[in-house]
Simulated scan of single mutants.
Amino acid sequence: MSTPSSMRRLVTAAVSLPLLAGGFVALNATSASADCGSHPAWQNLSSGAGRVTNSSPIRTGPYQSCDVVPNGQVGTSKDLFYHCWVLNREGNKWTHVRVANTTIEGWMYNGNLNDGGSTAPSNQCTA
């Protein structure tokens, strides 16, 4: 069974050997966290609330490739409080939300929200 530590040593050795021998190695480091993009700042600018149209995940950032927050799969019976929204680099609007009566919070794609999420210009997250 490989551990993260042993895998790291194996990758380091595989990359280092050609470099030490005078070779050139092109690395393409892609992962879900790298594809996730930036995690914009958010503020509680909205008094809006809503629900999801189908069971949907709350993510760590405003991209589908971002990780789901712990306990972040939200069913249609849960109320969500809106904080603010962003337009990600793919042109999609995401709202920062908190599940009512919990501390679970993160980003939800506006297309998954029953009312389209927070979209008022005054509710746009600012850096």
Score class of each variant (00 low, 15 high):
residue 106 G to M: 03
residue 57 P to A: 11
residue 23 G to H: 09
residue 54 N to C: 00
residue 98 R to N: 09
residue 29 A to Y: 14
residue 92 N to W: 06
residue 110 N to I: 06
residue 66 C to T: 07
residue 21 A to M: 11
residue 32 A to E: 12
residue 102 T to C: 10
residue 107 W to A: 06
residue 102 T to H: 02
residue 34 A to L: 11
residue 107 W to Q: 03
residue 93 K to E: 13
residue 116 G to A: 09
residue 8 R to F: 10
residue 5 S to R: 14
residue 69 V to Y: 05
residue 126 T to D: 03
residue 114 N to T: 04
residue 81 F to S: 13
residue 8 R to P: 00
residue 36 C to M: 07
residue 107 W to L: 05
residue 104 I to P: 04
residue 108 M to G: 08
residue 82 Y to D: 01
residue 59 R to Y: 04
residue 84 C to W: 04
residue 101 N to C: 01
residue 67 D to W: 10
residue 114 N to R: 02
residue 54 N to L: 09
residue 51 R to W: 08
residue 40 P to M: 14
residue 37 G to A: 01
residue 27 L to Q: 15
residue 86 V to M: 00
residue 80 L to Y: 03
residue 61 G to K: 05
residue 127 A to D: 04
residue 125 C to P: 01
residue 2 S to Q: 14
residue 111 G to S: 07
residue 102 T to N: 07
residue 56 S to C: 11
residue 24 F to G: 02
residue 91 G to D: 00
residue 65 S to R: 03
residue 74 V to G: 05
residue 125 C to T: 01
residue 51 R to P: 00
residue 24 F to S: 13
residue 88 N to P: 00
residue 35 D to A: 14
residue 48 G to W: 08
residue 19 L to Y: 11
residue 32 A to Y: 10
residue 118 S to P: 00
residue 56 S to V: 12
residue 78 K to L: 10
residue 32 A to M: 12
residue 120 A to M: 03
residue 101 N to S: 13
residue 62 P to M: 06
residue 119 T to H: 07
residue 2 S to C: 07
residue 30 T to V: 11
residue 29 A to V: 13
residue 122 S to Q: 07
residue 72 G to F: 09
residue 87 L to S: 10
residue 5 S to F: 14
residue 22 G to Q: 08
residue 31 S to N: 12
residue 53 T to A: 12
residue 6 S to M: 10
residue 126 T to F: 04
residue 12 T to E: 15
residue 51 R to Y: 12
residue 76 T to E: 10
residue 121 P to H: 00
residue 121 P to R: 01
residue 7 M to F: 09
residue 122 S to R: 01
residue 83 H to G: 02
residue 82 Y to K: 02
residue 37 G to C: 03
residue 49 A to F: 14
residue 2 S to M: 11
residue 8 R to V: 09
residue 50 G to K: 05
residue 20 L to D: 14
residue 80 L to I: 10
residue 56 S to I: 11
residue 100 A to K: 14
residue 86 V to T: 05
residue 106 G to T: 04
residue 73 Q to S: 14
residue 43 Q to M: 08
